[in-house]
Design a protein around this nucleic acid. Sequence first.
DNA 1: ACCAATTCCGACCTCCTCAGTCGGATATAG
DNA 2: CTATATCCGACTGAGGAGGTCGGAATTGGT
Lengths: 166, 166
Amino acid sequence: MVLREKSLFSTRAEYGVRLMMLLARQYGDGPLPLARVAEIEELPLSYLEQLAAPLRRDGLIRSQRGAQGGYELARAPEFITMGEVVRSLEGPIMPMMCAPEDEAHATCVRGEFCSAQVLWSRIRDAVTGVLDTTKLSDLASPLAGRDTPGERTPLLTINSRLEAAR
Amino acid sequence: MVLREKSLFSTRAEYGVRLMMLLARQYGDGPLPLARVAEIEELPLSYLEQLAAPLRRDGLIRSQRGAQGGYELARAPEFITMGEVVRSLEGPIMPMMCAPEDEAHATCVRGEFCSAQVLWSRIRDAVTGVLDTTKLSDLASPLAGRDTPGERTPLLTINSRLEAAR
DNA sequence: ACCAATTCCGACCTCCTCAGTCGGATATAG
DNA sequence: CTATATCCGACTGAGGAGGTCGGAATTGGT
């Protein structure tokens, strides 16, 4: 779809996070169908379906099947960390084979001689640190992180802004 | 070669860092040929040659061609950051297309609406933070990062330890 | 002068993952 | 009943990761 150089995470995390943020804004207003998400975020519906599956299995979102159905957050946005979201979509965070999250079974063949491992572990910890301390509620407002406190922004607002943009 | 799940960086960074650490231990004792490195680290020589090229172009290592030649660090280990090494091998650090190191040309099509961007930027900063504050000298000793101050360990020691290991 | 050891360079190749697509089955509100 | 959803599994095309290979250029040792 887009031209894509190498990047630390894949589109699964990217799209999945965008999906979750949309659900966060919608939280409390009933389920949102993926077709709407696909439309708003301009993402392929069939791909989104693939991303919703693990999120649901991991208890981050709830589904309502059938007409008027869709997905909604299983918990309030302030109780969902980005770490849960990203791990659900991408699996455990490891910057390198020899530095898995589960330090127990590092697959580093070279064992004690691999002192580079220290570096990769530090990086992994830095990444998971951000991921685990950032909650969905920290990002869900379009103004969040932009040095403005930012009140809640309903979907309606976002839609009209998208209209205006094209 | 090895089975390889998804990981934040590729083998280029992994092998390249190991190469640099070996050169760091050898620093001041003349050039080390890649054939030796390949032997010690059990890595394919022809692939190492590929990794040495950018490191040399970026002025991190110096080469000496011909017999008795090899590579050596262009500067002392305490003046080379892991950020320089990794960037030389892998290019700019971006966890996601919409959060490049050069914040100027973010290729995020959705512009201001992409509030997820905040997350990816934070992660990028966390990673580059570690990378840019860790120097080659911080890792070069096999004891470094293992809560022991760690004196300099010559190659000879490492070799004999490798012998013993198999 | 020669040879062996090196770096240097570019082309090539193979497999696996990413980023989807597709077809259909199942559930449910109106 | 039907339109709208989720759900599930199989399939696929392109591209990058992770190398390999052949040869040219450079240099120290004898």
